[in-house]
């Protein structure tokens, strides 16, 4: 029953979030601020993880393909497929659910317990819209760019590390990353990213917005935000994959 309660309250909150903004210029400023906070600040960690994951997948593939029937360009192909289809859109989103999700939930949760949200309400401002809409818009706009950079750096990381350890040649790797490319898989990846961006920002905001109590509860909201965002990312990953592949 509690699940239905949360579903109902979540959708009512989303309805409030998408009601007409009081002043567009203030919201636009907030969106730009959130893009910087959510997106730009996540770039270093995403870059490091993607670069090294690309390298690791290259080495594992190169030394794992022991059959002489498997051509060496399969390494580049494997890196591209892993990075584009699964690692960057899903695993990086899960990492971002931890980083961005906990940040959003604790920020909004702290505002709730220190009466800052009440202050917004009493000023006649739709607090849900003012606090949450810019985060959702910023997430949906900036995460696809972050993931695109992650894909690029993953493939570059594979190339540099593959060459450095002598796992592949430059020609074979570059041939591999271009081989059998199907553009629809990019639509598939970015559909996932946009969905995950919405889930991370809205679910984390939901848990922050309905925090009750003190600092301990802010911590609990933050944990719940990360756990539920991650679970829903995995469920939606399955659903979207099913939708595109069948």
């Amino acid at each position: 029953m509690k699940l239905f309660f949360h579903f109902g309250r979540y959708f009512l909150l989303i309805k409030r979030v998408f009601s007409k903004p009081e002043k567009l210029s203030v919201y636009t400023k907030q969106i730009l601020y959130e893009i910087d906070k959510i997106g730009i600040s996540s770039l270093p960690i995403i870059a490091i993880i993607s670069f090294f994951m690309g390298g690791v997948i290259t080495i594992q593939s190169a030394f794992g393909f022991t059959s002489p029937l498997v051509p060496l360009y399969a390494v580049g192909f494997t890196v591209r497929e892993s990075m584009l289809s699964e690692f960057c859109p899903t695993i990086v989103s899960l990492i971002l659910a931890g980083k961005i999700g906990s940040n959003i939930a604790s920020e909004i949760g702290s505002m709730r317990i220190t009466e800052q949200i009440d202050a917004l309400e009493i000023m006649g401002i739709n607090s849900a819209g003012y606090l949450i809409l810019p985060k959702i818009v910023a997430g949906v706009v900036i995460l696809p760019f972050l993931i695109a950079i992650s894909m690029f750096l993953g493939i570059v990381g594979g190339y540099i590390m593959g060459l450095a350890v002598g796992a592949v040649t430059s020609y074979e790797y570059i041939f591999g990353i271009q081989a059998f490319f199907e553009p629809w898989k990019l639509y598939y990846s970015f559909t996932k990213v946009i969905t995950f961006a919405f889930l991370i920002t809205s679910i984390s905001s939901y848990f922050g917005f309905y925090t009750e109590g003190g600092a301990l509860e802010v911590g609990k909201s933050s944990t719940s935000a990360v756990v539920y965002s991650s679970i829903l990312i995995l469920i939606f990953n399955f659903l979207i994959t099913q939708l595109f592949y069948t």
Partner: peptide, 17 residues
């Protein structure tokens, strides 16, 4: 509309951090 005419001083201030 009525709330726009209200000013409120909260116990803890409730300033935006």
């Amino acid at each position: 509309e009525i709330r726009k005419k209200i000013g409120m001083l909260f116990q803890g201030g409730a300033l935006f951090d």
